[in-house]
Simulated assay, not measured.
Amino acid sequence: MIATPYRFGISEFTTQPWSFDEDVERYARLGVDTIEVVEAKLDPDRFAEQMQSIGKAGLAISGVQPSVRTFFSSRMKPDPQGLNDRITALRGSIERLSRYAPGVPFITNTGAHPTGDMADAMRVVGDKLGELAKVAADNGVLLALEPLNPSSVNIESAIWTIDQALEVIDRSGSETVGLCLDYWNIWQNADVAAQIARAGSRIFTVQASDWRTPHSFADRIVPGVGDLPLAELIRATRKTGYDLPYVVEVFSDNVPDSIYDLDLEQVVSDCKQGFAAAWAASET
């Protein structure tokens, strides 16, 4: 196998129909370097064994998607409803899984503010991230806030730009809190390369996929087959000195030609090839 100058990862959301155990075995066999763990795929009775199986398979962990990852309720995870209950659940995920993923970012986003009050959402989430950062630091992990695409505003998120996310991160007052940079979500931000540059060392994890005009808020495609300027975004990210994994995260829910209906081993291989081509193009 030819070594690449980056570490390539797959989010378990990309292979939603597979079980956690299938993800680990198949990612390793297909030459994936890292896995973005989706807690909802873990068996509550076997999670310790399953988390330990990752390293045994030769994979590293790039990030953790907690079962409850938004501060306010969201369409993907509407319950529990209360802010404090959601924070308690997120704290529980950190305390439960951090020992198996030291130094890894736990990915969060704001959720949808119940009245659509963006200013209040940014204030509340910034403050609560600051409190939760102490828990993360005590457990040896990080928190990564993800701004989502405008198609998710008031559904999954109250923020949609890198600069908005950085404002919330700054409000947290903690170096333990950084950015989850998902290209699908931010590629249409104004002056996106400059925003990536401002994020700099606060980028804790990067996610990639590709764009077509979506049929739903969760309609993404394999890197290299859509309209997203992936090479330009990778180039801007590399200029910041980012040297952590690049993770392909594809959602394909409620669409007529879902990748979840395809040969997922081929999908993973196509993701590897598409990202490799974009990386090569980023060097020109």
Rank of each mutant, 00 (worst) to 15 (best):
I94H: 09
P5L: 06
R171F: 12
R171P: 02
Y6L: 11
V38C: 14
D261R: 12
C271Q: 04
V168S: 07
Q65T: 15
G241W: 12
A199Q: 04
D45L: 14
T205D: 01
V64A: 02
T88Y: 13
P44H: 06
G274A: 05
E131K: 06
K239T: 14
L132G: 01
G173W: 06
R123M: 13
M122V: 04
T237G: 01
E131Y: 00
A193R: 14
D210H: 03
D127V: 03
G63Q: 12
S93D: 11
Y246W: 15
R26W: 06
M51K: 05
L181N: 11
F217H: 15
A136R: 02
V104E: 07
A136W: 05
F8D: 10
I54P: 07
T108N: 06
E12H: 08
V247R: 03
V250A: 01
G31T: 08
I87L: 15
G58V: 11
L181S: 03
W211F: 15
S258P: 10
G111C: 07
V250N: 02
M118R: 15
A278C: 08
F8P: 00
D138G: 08
V68S: 03
A144L: 00
Q273S: 14
I155T: 12
M51D: 05
R212A: 01
T115Y: 06
A158D: 09
Y100C: 04
K239Y: 13
D191H: 13
T284E: 14
I234R: 00
R86D: 01
V247K: 06
K134Q: 12
R99T: 15
G126Q: 07
V168W: 04
S269P: 03
D138K: 13
A277C: 07
S67R: 08
P245K: 03
G200M: 08
Y100G: 02
P214W: 10
V141N: 01
V255Y: 09
V206C: 15
R75H: 11
V153K: 02
A158W: 11
G226K: 02
V177N: 08
S201H: 14
I155N: 06
T161Y: 05
T115E: 14
S62Y: 02
N189Q: 10
W211Q: 00
V250I: 15
A133N: 02
A60N: 13
G274Q: 00
T88D: 12
E36N: 04
G140E: 07
I107D: 05
